[in-house]
Amino acid sequence: MDSAALSVTFSLAVWTTLVLAVIGLPISYGLARASFPGRFLVEALISLPILLPPTVIGFYLLLAMSPTSPLGQLSKHALGQSLPFSFPGIVLASVIYNLPFTIRPFIAGFASIDPIMMDAAACLGLSRWESFIRIAIPLAWPGIISGMVLTFAHTVGEFGVVLMVGGSIPGVTRTLSVAIYDDVQALDYAAAGQTSLALVIFSIIVLSLTYALTGRRVPL
């Protein structure tokens, strides 16, 4: 198996999951508790990647990352490189593409908390931040775990968006699923089969571990 592709895939999945956990937790907490006009619009936007073909998302992301765009300018200054066909580029694409797979289970987790818990925390003098960290996150844990596992596994198997934004540069943007595609194109069915089987086994292990660790409370 292509060990460079394995390492790219693993790094991409870890980065995507971590970035989404950090931005997804406050967003989901807010969405689960607040009701405001236009809330449906925010939820629809977040869920968009479930419906849109990955190539369409990839295409627009590629446009957005072009060197002349604001995002392109920003990355030039901040990272010293342009985003298309780079590792930061596919992380960003993957974060946007995986938003619903993180946020929806997170929201389900936060929404399942009995409101009396948050009332009790407020009356005990816990600040909003303390309530969030000490009460809300531990109580929403099954939903949070399931969102992170889904995101990780989904990123490992990602193809369209990564290929559109990152191409297939070995050791930089070539992930396992892109490698399988390349192998099949090159008629190397043995290599493609090996990698595919590895991904199937990986998925089964991840899901089993999730169910075992969270005691079946995962809204997957």
Partner: peptide, 30 residues
């Protein structure tokens, strides 16, 4: 004023103990 700023104690009708914390940690919460 927020409940935090009023410094009141509220005992709820339904069970409101934090299920993920021990008795000691629950009492320590405030």
């Amino acid at each position: 004023l927020s409940p935090q700023a009023r410094r009141i104690g509220y005992l709820f009708q339904r069970d409101s103990l934090f299920p993920h914390l021990t008795v000691d940690a629950n009492i320590d919460a405030g």
